[in-house]
């Protein structure tokens, strides 16, 4: 696992020597705060929980995760360092895993840094901290899924802008898949079973289930498989590039 570790450390370091990490952390923390209090009515609801905080996460990730992942492979392809990396003794899988884990740990750090809001809600009332932990877990899993999508689509192109837009597009489709408006649209056109399938693709639905504190195996499996699937697709794309 040493090469995975080396790639992971290099990636994390590159976040922090470029402004990417700080810009991300500041924007994430500020937006999460503002949205929770002003849009989520944190105080006015009069409930001691972090629901208004967690509902903002899919939308924050939608903008911020592609910004982290767009450079992941596109930059290496364009700068020629891909040739250096892939002629070192490591497999494509190890390279992909190292990069994925670096981004995932980084988002984990961003989530940890939101701890003041957890302190606040514990100061104001007595929330169910188990539910809050589940919420954080769900949010982190969802972030991992977004990152895997971004990692795959970054391998598709040498343009970071294209990688950003494609990633945001796929993510918004996956968020919205379970919304009533979308399902209504499909209701007439597709058989009932397919509509249900579309609904199950919805990331939001699985995330909401976990963040309510219901740790259903199906939701965990959804995130696990989806994340793995996108990472496999990314590795296959990179491999395909070597033959074309």
């Amino acid at each position: 696992m040493s090469p995975v570790n080396a790639v992971l450390r290099r990636e994390l370091r590159s976040y922090f020597v470029t402004p990417v990490a700080y810009v991300f952390l500041v924007i994430f923390l500020v937006l999460a705060g503002i949205l929770t209090f002003y849009v989520g009515d944190f105080y006015e609801r009069g409930q001691a929980d972090l629901q208004p905080f967690f509902v903002t996460h899919p939308w924050l990730y939608l903008i911020l995760v592609p910004a982290i992942t767009m450079r992941m492979w596109a930059e290496e392809t364009k700068g020629g360092t891909l040739e250096l990396l892939l002629t070192l003794p490591l497999t494509l899988w190890q390279a992909m895993l190292g990069k994925f884990l670096a981004a995932w740990l980084f988002i984990g750090l961003a989530l940890v840094l939101t701890f003041p809001i957890w302190i606040t809600v514990n100061y104001l009332g007595s929330p169910d901290n188990g539910v809050i932990v589940a919420g954080y877990l769900g949010s982190w899993l969802m972030a991992g899924n977004f990152i895997a999508i971004g990692a795959c689509l970054s391998a598709l192109t040498r343009s970071q802008v294209v990688a950003f837009i494609l990633t945001a597009l796929v993510c918004v489709l996956l968020i919205l898949a379970g919304q009533p408006q979308v399902l209504d649209f499909f209701q007439g056109a597709l058989p009932r079973r397919l509509v249900n399938a579309v609904a199950h693709l919805s990331m939001l639905r699985h995330f909401e289930a976990i963040s309510r504190g219901v740790l259903d195996l199906r939701d965990l499996v959804y995130f696990l498989f989806s994340t793995l699937g996108w990472l496999i697709a990314g590795v296959l794309l990179l491999d395909l590039k070597r033959t074309r």
Binding site: S14, V17, G80, L84, T87
Partner: peptide
């Protein structure tokens, strides 16, 4: 040991 064309390396390091 391989030196690719143009000696690419990670500029920010």
């Amino acid at each position: 040991g391989y030196l690719p064309e143009g000696a690419p390396s990670y500029g920010e390091m």
